[in-house]
Every structure is written in structure tokens, then in C-alpha cells.
Design a protein around this nucleic acid. Structure first.
Lengths: 213, 213
DNA sequence: AGTCAAGCGGAACGTTGGTTCCGCTTGCGA
DNA sequence: TCGCAAGCGGAACCAACGTTCCGCTTGACT
């Protein structure tokens, strides 16, 4: 990616306003809100949206890429709290993040190849959080990185279902999940998402979008 | 509802094939699959679909109404197993049911007023399951009926996210959740979905659909 | 067998929503 | 201050999809 010429000041500002408007609109009107609505909310014309994001999907990807970056920050921060609280801290932050991005959550793991590096870093960070929690006996030792993704999907399901009825119901879900993530004497019976499964999830999602428009 | 004349035999068969095809197509291509695709899969013309289901939404509602009825059956069956296993039995059945209806899950609670009675019965049945579990110390006593819905949303999130990568990953999620639903010495801190919240969820969903097409 | 209401297929229609295009505006370096 | 490349708005374009319509077919009853 050769660094393109920097944006004009007004253009850069518009870009931010578009992103913010998109997040807002998606989370209230759902992922299939029209570009018009986003443009109106951002106070620009649709042409402006399209000059910055060549397609609607690119716009969504820009949002989810940022989301991934934010998750990474959260994971690193979770390494600074006491080991016993690391996972809970991360998941609480992630839940909050997801709640503020309702509507885009199903795309979270499918943002294009440019996010590959971030995804790698995220895995590393989260795994470290897991290990730390394990060592001090705070989390069960049969938890994989994929299980953390699974927890995020659970929270996403709750978030998307009750969006504006009770936007933070996910907190209760997380409480229950965290109780279940504490060590017990028996291992979990059902297998976790298979390694590499996360990549397939992303492929599948984009494939699906591709076939329908 | 004055009972309409019974369907001709072939028409009745087609109706079933359409429903089956719709469930299949939705779960593989997502909820916004076209009617054409469903009709093709069912081996009928689009006109036939529309004669039986006046709109696409009606088709989805027919599916989710059946889903609700099936949930009710599961809840009643869960009253016949040992009290300590009732909730787990119900949730396992519900998870499986949801996995076989991916794509329609977000509509589950919004099927029209004709399902009101079923929803009432379901609440009653599930609450009985909860009470039984509570009495024998198998489930925590601060669980509400809404919490069960919350668990279903969690599972739905996992189901929808990994549909064809690992369609039964929800089993692992459920294991974790069940561990968290066992009694502990401290009550949950975050509030459950407020009473009546379920009705709002349905309203919200249909409102959302209404505004977008 | 004959009748016909019910059922059927699929082309055609209208709308919605993503995307493109073009004439006007404006930030910014010379 | 001037010039212009970059940016802008929004009308117009186009493909996809829900829905309707109509001429043909067929199950069921006599």
C-alpha cells in the first residue's frame, strides 16, 4: 500500500464524521441502513461517502477494523491489571465496545486481509491474558483463544437482540459466562472451535455477503 | 379466524415443501435470501409461495411460530426429566432447534399476535422448569424467565456466527453457561431483562423491519 | 367423464438502495 | 491573490428483490 497523498483538512474531518455517523446509524437502524441515511446524518452527500469508501462494505470494514484495533488495546490493558481479573476486564471492555457497535458485529471477524496482522496480535494478547488467569487459578485451563471469540459472539447475540430495549443486558450474560469460566473439576465435554476456524468464519461471512448483493 | 377451506392435497404438500425449503435456504444463505431461491429449492414458482404466504414476512413468521411451538413442546418435556436436569434438557433442545433454524433467529420473539398465546404458555412452562430446578438446588435462585431468553440469545449469537463452520459450537457455549447458572453464594450484580422487555423486543424488531422495507 | 374452483409458473412491474457521474466549490501551495 | 487538483452534493442510473397478474393445469366431487 503506497501511502496516498494526505487528505485535505475538510476531507479528513468529513471522513471521521462519516465513520461516526455510520456507527450510529448502523447501531440504531441495523446493518442494512441505507447510505443516504448515513450521509444525511454526517451532513454530507452520498458522493462524499463513496469517494472515501469505495463501497458500503468498505465502510463497514473500516469500522470493524477499528473495532479490532480497539479490542487489541483492551487486551493489552488487561495485562496491566491483576492476573485474576485480566479476562474479566478484557471481556467487560469488549462487551461495552460491542454494545456501542451494534449492527456491525457480524462483520467483526471478516474485515479484509489488511486486518490480518491485528488479528494475529489480538490472538497473542488474549492468549497471554488467558495464561495469566490460568496460572493464578482464576480461569479454567481448557479454555482456548477461540473460546474467547465464542464468548464475544454470545455477548453479540444478546446485544443485537435487545439493542435499544436494554443495551447493557450483556453485562448479566457476561456475569453468568464468567462464573462458568472459572475452574471446575471436570473438563468441558464439547469441543471448542477448531483451530483456524476463525479464518473460516471470516471467509464464510464475506462469501455470504457476496452472493446476495 | 374462520377456518378456511382445507387445502387441496398437492397444495398442502407444496406448503410444507416451501416451509422446509425456506428454513434450509435461510440457514445457509441468511435471512435476506430471495424468494426466488426458496421457490426454486421447493420446486415451485414464486407465485405459489405468495399464494400461501402473502408476504415474505408472513413466511418467516410461519417458521418462527412453529419454532415457538416446538420450544413449548421442549419445555413440557423438560418437566418429565429429573428436576435437576430440567433446565439443561430444555436448553439443549432449544439450542439444537435454533441451530436448525439459523437465519430466522432474530425474528423468533417477534412473530405476530397469533403467537401471543404460545408465548404465554412457554413462559409458564419454562418458569415451572426453573422452579423445579431451584427447589432441588440445581439452578441459582435469582434466575428469571427473561434470563432463559437471554441464554437463547447467547446461543443464537454463536449459532449465527459459525453457522456452517461448526454448527454445534453452541454446545460448548451452553456448557459454560450452565456452569454459570448453578447456585453460588453471591447473587448476580447486573439486572435481568426487565419484565415486559420481551414484548418490547418483538415490537422493536418489527418496527425495524418496517422502516427498512 | 365432465366441470370448475383452486392451484400453478413465471414474466412483468415497482421500489428500494447501492453506485456513478458531472458541474460547481474550496483548501492550499505558489 | 491566483490556479487548480481535490473535494463536494445530489440527480441519475442500474441491478436486485418483493410483489402482482394472468393464462394454463389439475385435484376432487358428481
Amino acid at each position: 500500500m503506497t501511502a496516498a497523498a494526505p487528505l485535505r483538512r475538510d476531507a479528513a474531518a468529513n471522513r471521521e464524521r462519516i465513520l461516526a455517523a455510520a456507527i450510529d446509524v448502523f447501531s440504531t437502524s441495523g446493518a442494512d441502513a441505507g447510505i443516504d441515511e448515513i450521509a444525511r446524518k454526517a451532513g454530507v452527500g452520498v458522493g462524499t461517502v463513496y469517494r472515501r469508501f469505495p463501497t458500503k462494505e468498505a465502510l463497514v470494514q473500516a469500522i470493524t477494523a477499528q473495532l479490532l484495533r480497539d479490542l487489541l488495546v483492551l487486551a493489552r490493558r488487561a495485562l496491566d491489571v491483576p492476573a485474576a481479573e485480566g479476562l474479566a476486564t478484557f471481556l467487560a471492555g469488549a462487551g461495552d465496545l460491542q454494545a456501542r457497535h451494534a449492527g456491525c458485529l457480524w462483520q467483526l471477524w471478516s474485515s479484509g486481509p489488511e486486518s490480518d496482522e491485528i488479528r494475529g496480535d489480538l490472538r497473542q494478547g488474549v492468549q497471554r491474558v488467558l495464561v495469566r488467569g490460568r496460572e493464578c487459578g482464576a480461569v479454567r485451563d481448557d479454555l482456548t483463544y477461540e473460546d474467547v471469540a465464542m464468548v464475544l459472539w454470545s455477548l453479540a447475540g444478546v446485544v443485537e437482540s435487545v439493542r435499544d430495549v436494554q443495551p447493557d443486558l450483556w453485562r448479566r450474560t457476561l456475569e453468568v459466562l464468567l462464573l462458568g469460566l472459572r475452574p471446575t473439576d471436570a473438563a468441558l465435554q464439547s469441543p471448542p472451535l477448531r483451530p483456524g476456524g476463525l479464518d473460516e468464519v471470516s471467509l464464510q461471512t464475506s462469501h455470504r455477503r457476496g452472493r446476495q448483493g
